[in-house]
Design a protein around this nucleic acid. Sequence first.
RNA 1: GGGCGUUUAGCUCAGCUGGGAGAGCGCUACCCUUACAAGGUAGAUGUCGGGGGUUCGAUCCCCUCAACGCCCACCA
Length: 887
Amino acid sequence: MEIENNLPKTFDSEGAENKWYQKWLDGQCFKPRKGKQNKTFTVLMPPPNVTGKLHMGHALDATTQDALIRYKRMKGFETLWIPGTDHAGISTQAVVEKLIYKQEKKTRHDLGREEFLKRVWEWKEQYGSEIVNQQKKMGVSCDWDYSTFTLDEAPNKAVKKFFVMLYNEGLIYQSDYIVNWDPILQSAISDAEVEHKEVKGFFYHLKYKVKEDPTIELIIATTRPETIFADSAVAVNPNDERFKDLIGKTAIVPICNREVPIIGDEHVDIEKGTGCLKVTPGHDFNDFEIGKRNGLPIINILNKDGSFNKNAPEIEGLKPKDARKKVEEILLELGELVEKKDHVHPVGHGERSDEIVEPMVSKQWFVNTTAMAEAAVKAVEDGDMTFFPKGWENTYFAWLRNPKDWCISRQLWWGHQIPVYYCKKCDHQWASEGDPTECIQCKDKDIFQDPDVLDTWFSSGLWPLSTLGWPDEKAMAEKRFEDFYPNSTLITGFDIIFFWVARMMMMGMKVTNKPPFQHVYIHAIVRDKQGRKMSKSLGNGIDPLDMVKQYGADAMRFTLAAGSGYNRDLNLDPERIEGYRNFVNKLWNAFRFVHPFLDKAKDELPVKSEWHLHDKWILAELNTVAKTMNEAMDVYRFDDACSEIYQFVYEKYCSWYIELSKNILYGNDEKAKVIRATMLKYCFRKIVTLLHPIVPFITEEIWGYLENEKSLLAVQEYVEFDPGLENTEVQEMMNKFIELTSGIRNIRSSVNMKPKDEIDVKLFTDDKRLAKFVYESRHFLKDLANVKSGTIRNKASEKPRRSASLATTHTEIFIPLEGIIDLNEQVNRIKKDMEKTQAEYKKVEAKLSNTNFMNNAPEEVRQEVKEKARLFQDKLTSLTQILESFQ
RNA sequence: GGGCGUUUAGCUCAGCUGGGAGAGCGCUACCCUUACAAGGUAGAUGUCGGGGGUUCGAUCCCCUCAACGCCCACCA
C-alpha cells in the first residue's frame, strides 16, 4: 500500500524557528499567567555585556534557563524570566574609546566627559541590542517587557538609594588606601579583578649601607629594584639573631641615598630572601601594612599611567620595564648590585587590560562588607538559599567568610557616577539620591559631584531588586515586586560566584532581609572537545549561531542540555551537535510516519479493555519517562532528562512501538487501526510535551500538526506521572519479547541470512505468560524479523536437532536450517555463549556457597542472587541440550 | 603556600544510601526493508589511575601515592 506523505524528509529547523518564535510572542506566551500551582517562578537572566556577541557560555545560559522556565510554565507556575543587558563599564568604554580614536584620532579627554558619554550612548543604541536578537534565535522565552539595562533609570535609582543608605550608616567610606592600579585603564580595580600569573623575572640582591657602622652592609632581596625610590624603611624580624641589634639604626637606600630607619616587624620571614626587607608602603600591599604599624611615610613614585614621577628623578617618565633596566645599570655602576638570578613569581594582572597592575596608594571609596557577608553566609548555612550542585557553596563560603572591604570607585566615565557631592566653599561632603543644586550645609551653589563611577558589580549586585522596580514604589507595584521577589532560581557559571552571586546575596539581604533567590544552579563552563577554554587567541571557539544555522537551534539546545548536569566542564564537540540534530530529525520522521494516520485518530484514549498489550506497554514506559523527567528537571539534572527521553524515543517508541504498529495500520481491521492511530497520536502528544522545554521549535511544529494549530504547546500542561498507567508485568513480558526477537535476529545474522529470507521459528519456554504474550504478538514477528511461521511449546517438547539455535534464560530458539548451515560454526557459537554463562554462574554460585555471605547479606540480596543462579542454570541446561543435539 | 575538583570503553561523560560495569559519539560486518542512509540489524572494546585498609562483598566508604585541572594567596 502506498501512503502519501507530503511532509519533507528532513526537518526544516530554520522555518520553524522563525515561525514559532513570532507566534509565541503574538500569543503572549512569555508573559506571567496564573496556573494551577498558584505560585510564581522567577528567573533572572545574568545580563550579558552590551558589547558582547553571543558565545557558547551565553548559549548554555540561555538553554538551561529557558528549559527550566518553559518546564515550570507548563507545570502551572506563574513564570517570569527577566532579561537585560549590562553596561559593562570598563569594556564598553574601552570599545568606544578605541573606535573614536581609530576614526577621529581623539581620546576621551579631547572630547570631554559629556560629549564622550553621548557617543557611548549612541554606540549602545546602535549595537547594544545585537546580543538580544541572538538570544532570540536560541528561542529564549523571557518577558521582553521586563527588559532592563543597568544604566536605565530604575537601576540608577536603586544604586543611588543603596549607596546613600550605606553611606549614611557609615558602611561606605573614603580612604587613602593601597589599591590595585591598572595603568591602562588608569583606574583602581577590585581584588577580584586581579588575575595572578606566573611571570619570569629576576631576584636582585642589593647592598644597603648602615649609617652608624659603614662596615656593615645589609643585603636585601627584591624583584622590583626600581621601587627603591619609594623605600621608607628596612625591616628585619625582631627575633632574627643576625640582625636584631641593628633595629633602631639607619640604613641608606642606594642611588637616592635616603636615610631610612631599620625597624623590627614580625611580618618579615627569617627564612625567605635574605631576611632583610625593603619597606615600600606606597607600592606594596604588605609594606603598606608595615608602614601603618610603624608610622612610616608613604612615598608615591608613580604617575597614573604607570610611569615614574619626579620622586624618582633618575627614571622619571620611564615605564616600569625600562625603569628596571635603568636602575639595574646604575646599581651595577655603583657596585650596589651583588647578585641577579632568574626567578619565577606570580604577578597581578588586570583582568580586562591584561597589564601588570601596580599597587598604588590613592583615595578610593570602599564598602565595609563584614556584616553583609556574615548574613549572606548564614542564609546558605540555614538553607534559605541552596546551591546546585551543593559543592559550590564551598567557593561561596571561602569568599564570604574572609571578607575584605570592597573598592567600589573606578576612575572611568561610563557608569553610575558616585552620588557624593562636595561644597567648594565650606568643604562639606554628603551623599544624595537626588540632584542637589546647593550645599546642604552652607547653601552655596558652588558644588560638584564626585567624578568617579561605581564598579559595575555594584549595580549588578542590585539586579534582582532593580529589575522589579525597587526602590520606586509605583514601579514596584507595576512590576509586581511582591509576587516575584525573591526570585526562584539563578542560573550562572561558577566563575562569577563571588563577583556576582555573593554580591547579590549581600545586597539583596541588606535591603529586604531575604536572599534574592532560593536556588542557585551553577552550570558548567563550555570548553572545546579537548577541554581547553574557548578563546580568541587559540581560535578554538565554536560560534553558537553558526551551529544554529547548520544544525538548528533545537539540536544546539539539546546538546547543551544533555551536557548539563552537575559537571563543571562541558567539552563540546560539534560532532555531538550533529548527533543530536540526527535525533531531532529522527523525531521528525517518526512524526512523518504517524502523520497520514492522524485523521483516523480519536482525541480520547479508548477504554482500557480495548488496549492491546503493546499499548499498555508503551503507555507504561511513557509514564516511567514522565516520572524520571519531572524528577530530573526539578533538581536541574538536564542531562538525565535528556538521556531519558532520547532513549525512549529511539529505543521504545521508534524501534518497537512504531514497528509493532505497521502490521495493524497497513492491515484491514478498521477498529484496530483507529485504536492504534489514537495511541500513536496520544503518545506523540506526550512526547512533544515532555521534550518541549528542551527543543521548543520542532515540538511546537509537530504540535501544530497534531492540534491543527488550535493551541500552542508552549502553554500546555506538562506530563505528570500517572499511577494508573503503571504495568510492570507487561513491561517485563515485553522485555523478554524484545530479547527473543533480538535472539532471532542474532541467529539470522550468524548464518549470514539476507533480510529478505523468510524463516520458520520454533520457540520453547515454560513461562506461560510469556508464551501467551508471544502468541498474541505472533503476527508482528514478520515485520520484526521476517518470521514466516513458527510454533511455541513448553521445554519438555521434542526439539529440532542440528538447528541454528540460541538460548536465553527463559526461552530456547530454534531455526531449523539443517543442511544449509555450517554446523561447526554453530557449535562454536553455542560453546562461546556457554563459557560466558558459566563464568557468570560461577560468580553467583561462589556467593551462595560462602557462609559469610549467607549469614551477613540481607535477605533481599540473597534472594536476588539465588534467582540469578537459577536463571543462569536454566540457560546452561538449555545450551547443554542444544550442544547435545549436534552430536 | 591554602582550598576545591578530576582520574570509568578510542573520545566525551553518567553511575543515587556499597550487592551482576553503562550511555552517546566513534569503530567492525551486513542491509537503500513502503517514517527516517541525518537510517536499520548484529557485533567488538574496560586489571573503573597505583597501593593499602574497612567489609561476606568496594567503581562507590577510609588512608596513602601519582597525574591533571581550577580557584584563592602580599610581586622579599
